[in-house]
Design a protein around this nucleic acid. Sequence first.
DNA 1: GCTTTAATAGTAATAGTTACTGATAGCAAA
DNA 2: TTTGCTATCAGTAACTATTACTATTAAAGC
Lengths: 127, 127
Amino acid sequence: MRNTSQRELVYKVVMQSSDHPGADAVYERARKIMPKISMGTVYRNLKQLAETGKIREIRISDNYNRYDKTLQVHAHFCCRVCGKVTDVPVEGGIKGPGSGFGGKLESTDILFGGVCEECIVCGKEGA
Amino acid sequence: MRNTSQRELVYKVVMQSSDHPGADAVYERARKIMPKISMGTVYRNLKQLAETGKIREIRISDNYNRYDKTLQVHAHFCCRVCGKVTDVPVEGGIKGPGSGFGGKLESTDILFGGVCEECIVCGKEGA
DNA sequence: GCTTTAATAGTAATAGTTACTGATAGCAAA
DNA sequence: TTTGCTATCAGTAACTATTACTATTAAAGC
């Protein structure tokens, strides 16, 4: 894998983002530094960085991939009102499949949904 | 919501499937009973049934929605070799966000990834 | 510097899903 | 039962996120 300035930038953008950005958001942020970078390059590098374990790809209920700088296994909470995604701890820690599971566990993704504290306080939680 | 034969069929197909089918698989199975049913109808009804809580929409790391007849909160395991999705128990039961979370929890999705027992036994687990 | 070739910009293509349109049929009231 | 309203349907076009393609560019080793 060659060390190109584009790949380095995509990586840096993800590492500096704590809001779990999608490819479009990474593209917008990268364009501010390198205006000629192309969307395809962003997609390719995000995928490649995720495959090599440099960043993490996460999947929320909206229909696009998001990227996460945090590599260790952790849970996410996605607010259905404001759409914000945040890291949250899990009560008692994150556990694997219970007894009876004979496969090989390689990844764990936990996603909570609901309304975040901020939206409740502002009274935006809706019906 | 009107009780149409198409909607009833889509619902029945999901209820009779234990393999967490995607829209295309539901379409194929529905076509065997009602050959003129359209893809759009399948999509619309799956979405509507999920929104009204009759079935559950789940999201695996491959890029399409799957549907689940089981309404109660449960975890899934997706084998990266054969692609099969199965229900699995979680060690110690399924927990919510830990203390410090002040929002409203409405949904929990847990997805394990790896290689299933069957693929390990058959020696298909790859590198 | 020169060569090799992975990676790039730009664009076309794909896949899953949703929206649109005229026709159909479920349901309620007459 | 018949009529009217309109949600839903089949069929198709459109849309969005993502991937593939192609000529060009630029890392990295010699």
